[in-house]
Design a protein around this nucleic acid. Structure first.
Lengths: 217, 217, 217, 217
DNA sequence: TATGAATGAGAATTCATTCAT
DNA sequence: GATGAATGAATTCTCATTCAT
């Protein structure tokens, strides 16, 4: 659950180790409760070395945020969505959403420590929210906008709602499920999760209201 | 947005002041970054006094959590839902959900500092999640279960999903909206929020998929 | 040589101890080379206690400077001069200067650690010089101005030079001697010092140039 | 005001740069507050290089002191005095002292950073004072002794005081003026300085006491 | 020889907690 | 009970010095 792979981001060897260790420690205890001493130990460097790369403890956090935004914005997060929806000519939306859910779950699991750090910061700091919004949310909305027309044409989604609303509802439905799986994983067997996922997607697609009898055939 | 009223929970005057101040300070900076000195100042008591009521700083947090669970579990949180759904014989589900959304938004706004503290703790601590789950989630699911039969009979909701799933989807849809409103409030005018709320509820009720043409008449 | 008595300046017991210790340590090693740990030890308080009274190490220095200016400005420094010159109707200038020299020497010896600290700071910091100038030099020049008319009338000093010039020359002549005594004290027996002092005062009064023969009788 | 020229002292290129940079930095912040990192930067060498030439930071200071003593002892300090007093057969003492004052002022201005460093060290360290005394003061006294007989014969100075006393009084009178000019230069216009210098020299020559009326004619 | 990354001992500062009043 | 001064362990950060390249 530790050891996020940052090797893609070409940082000096030591800096990467420090960042990686910091993500682990911050994620475990939160920023303020973490000590540079512990980060140094986990990174396998001297405490002083940390401060060659990051002027202050706070700068480490900033470093993490920057990496996170790089990581989540274009390449992985948005890219993943586009790959799933772009390549899948033949699949119906239900299948696509299921794939998406699993993909996102894996993403969150992989980057869980980083997520936790960022989430906490976002909860407390306007400027972090702002940065996430600008760098991730805006791009995601754009990406959904691009997909939507195609989806509408294929009869997959309603055409009468904005990409924002569409995205929000999808995120809401899936995020709650993912959060539950991640945070209370031990209450969920895999099969249960699959079943719950199917239901959640069904509700997302068809709504809570009963279908009018004739439309179900 | 400050000054949560805990007067219902009969605590010694000073203790209440301390808790209230602590909620404010923890909410602003997080637990670890907050100092007992600042709490004392905000509470208008001497620093030493805090330690008459709470053996350690951590105990203050525990005190907040206990209050929070009391507050959120039965009376306010679940109670609110029951009142809305119970009393409203004549309204349709769309209206009820709208009312619920506004009620929950007001709740979150009122208790925002407390929420923030609890949320952060829940993110980091299994035992807090456990406590919240047992004391709040379980009750909420029960409450929804009780409502559901009635709703199904009135043709408001599908009868083929569990209360858990139902609750999860509803929470997902509405929570994202509330979070957005709370955290990025300045990007939302009231009218925009109303419009977005209507759409979110519509999606929640009817789904993302296009209704089959004949069912719309 | 340590233990400056600051008891006149009513400071809290602990604060006085800290200040006193700081003067000693700063004087011995200079500000930057001194550690708060050593100050605390010398003051007999915990290191943390220092920071209840002075937010930063630098503030301790500021505290010393303030005390020093209080001490040196009115009461002791200027006051001493006035007492010597004011009360002594019958004595000639030579005697007065001798008394002054001894008084100043004692003053410098008593406050040597404080002196050293202030001197070093003054050498490096414009603002300290400014403060000393405004609070001490200006007053001293005034005081000399007040004395001068009386002196001129009694035929003791020339009336054709400004108080500033007069003060400067007097300080120059005496300060070098005092500095030598303080810094190289072990090269000076008391008798030698007295002899040198007499000569220095004679030169100050009569100049380096040979007196014109007739004026010597 | 920076950039002391040490090129006379044949040191390896890098070593000279390091010393020069160190003088600048030490002079600005004092020894303890200066960092080898900053010295390296100012010298345009790597931090490690410093330690090839000087085993410790303290050794850099020692290096400066050695240079300073070389510089000030024979050549510049004493030499300057001898040149002024030796060559000037026709001038009177007032003129000579004026020339000396200007020469010394220029000297102090030129070597101000070095001066500041040495002065601070001398204030704190007996051994530095000792070194300065032996290498500079003793030679200066000798030099003055050599001049004095000639001066006395020409009716310029009193013959009844020791070279030491003579030197001390001269230094006292002129040093105060130079210090004031250097440290509070902005309070002095050039003309004011000249006027003050004339007065100081007059007092040094003729004393503070009024000349006996008949001797002035 | 020169470099500069890495080190770790040591410095200033913070803060929960204690306790005499 | 309430206070707030005092504590000192713990924390962040600095910097002279070393050493592999």
């Amino acid at each position: 659950m530790d050891e996020i792979d940052l090797s893609g981001m070409d940082l000096p060897e030591k800096e990467r180790k420090i960042l990686q260790a910091a993500i682990g420690v911050f994620s475990e205890k939160g920023f303020s409760a973490s000590t540079t001493n512990e980060i140094a130990k986990n990174a396998g460097v001297a405490e002083g070395t940390i401060f060659r790369y990051y002027k202050t403890k706070k700068d480490i956090l900033r470093g993490i945020l920057i990496q996170a935004i790089n990581l989540f914005s274009s390449k992985i997060v948005i890219g993943g969505v586009e790959k799933i929806f772009g390549s899948a000519e033949e699949k119906d939306l239900r299948t696509l959403l299921k794939e998406l859910l699993h993909d996102r779950l894996k993403l969150v699991e992989t980057f869980f420590p980083m997520f936790r750090v960022i989430l906490t910061e976002a909860i407390y700091h306007e400027d972090v929210r702002e940065a996430l919004y600008k760098n991730i949310a805006v791009k995601a909305i754009e990406a959904v906008g691009n997909l939507q027309e195609n989806m509408v044409n294929r009869g997959f989604v309603r055409g009468d709602v904005s990409p924002t609303a569409l995205l929000r509802s999808a995120i809401g439905s899936l995020a709650v499920l993912i959060a539950q799986k991640i945070l209370m994983g031990d209450k969920f067997t895999s099969e249960e999760f699959e079943a719950e996922a199917d239901i959640a997607i069904d509700i997302l697609l068809n709504g809570l209201a009963p279908r009018s009898p004739d439309s179900e055939t």
